[in-house]
Design a protein around this nucleic acid. Sequence first.
DNA 1: CGTGCTCTTGAGTCAAATCAATTATTGTGG
DNA 2: CCACAATAATTGATTTGACTCAAGAGCACG
Lengths: 215, 215
Amino acid sequence: MLMHKEFSNPTTIVGAAGYLGLIGSTKLGGTTRHREKELIYAQGDEAGDIYIVEYGCVRVSRITPEGRRLVTGFYFAGQVFGFETGGERQCYAETLEYSGTRRLQLDDRDLANPLIAEMLFGYLESIHQHLLVLGTQNSIERVAAFLVGIADRREDGSNKARLPMSRCDIADHLGLTLETVSRAIHRLQVLKLITLVGAREVILLDRTALIELGA
Amino acid sequence: MLMHKEFSNPTTIVGAAGYLGLIGSTKLGGTTRHREKELIYAQGDEAGDIYIVEYGCVRVSRITPEGRRLVTGFYFAGQVFGFETGGERQCYAETLEYSGTRRLQLDDRDLANPLIAEMLFGYLESIHQHLLVLGTQNSIERVAAFLVGIADRREDGSNKARLPMSRCDIADHLGLTLETVSRAIHRLQVLKLITLVGAREVILLDRTALIELGA
DNA sequence: CGTGCTCTTGAGTCAAATCAATTATTGTGG
DNA sequence: CCACAATAATTGATTTGACTCAAGAGCACG
């Protein structure tokens, strides 16, 4: 429907490319600074606008009536989040660290803007990828795909993935438990596919093998 | 972002409401008739247009590089399918029974049409719901949610769900095996929440309890 | 009225969940 | 700056829900 998207990367969400073209738009707000663990919006808030991450990291999640949580995504610098249906938001958006975001007011006609449409379709593609992960992959494949996805979103092209989110956040994103995530990371280390630098940073030693695992 | 969507129903995709307003549009093609198991589009085909089911049922699925399959959705009369990112389709669409579909040509500007936008956001919401199912629910909850979702899409308001898809299709939709689906259906019968009429039709005896299970 | 599907059912296995410590890390006040 | 509390992550032991493998049963169709 729109421009072609690279497919080597399983979890790229929405790049900054489109965003640049919006600078100067009257509907693009200034940068809002958030402390760690700050709520950007909650379930029940009015939906409609979207947000662009300037720096830092945002976690978007959804709670089921039974209290189970699904983390629908993590968004880093240059990425867009907040696309939602209906009048009310069904998700919570919270910062995981000191972050800056800009709000972009949207109305129906903005969807005709190719930049906005690209963002929306990029988001659609990312959910589809997430579905594929949750529907077909085992724990080690899920974690491998996750790490590659995070690393791919770094602005520098380095083989590192910074993890501002907890093991529990990762688990709730991948439909696993935090213990299983921890064990999968351990196994990837034993397989010499990654190295841990502390608990919150990983170096991808064999990206190809990781992509193959998580494909 | 757009109009409010009912939330009692976990798997409604895109209703026929929007479609009616498009009758007369030059871009809406005539009805194409398909035999059972006919391919409507394949991975690699050019993306861009969407389809409306007139009657029958369409299965949309995606195959991973390792050959695993995810059925992303089933579409019945009045529903829209075929929203995809990028130049090439990543999914296969096939009829499960004798069906009729109409193609709707889309270009970027059509997204500004509220009817089209509603369809797109309805689709977005349905994927989100599917994610929630795959990310948080166990086998019996998944099957319960699935059956309620199918029943909700009947035009008559009856508590029946017709299942033109096989157990294997359901399994690949829910991230389970066909045996597990069969056992879950059996357990729902024992719990007196459903009755089977043959293998391909179920009557929902306690929709509330089913929704609670699958919520 | 077979023949081939699909679906069901059973038995055994295995991957991930659960339960339970233990070991980093991080943060705080003395 | 260090001791200590609090939080997060790892690791181990055990359980369990879903998968796998393997027969049968039910149905649809020629």
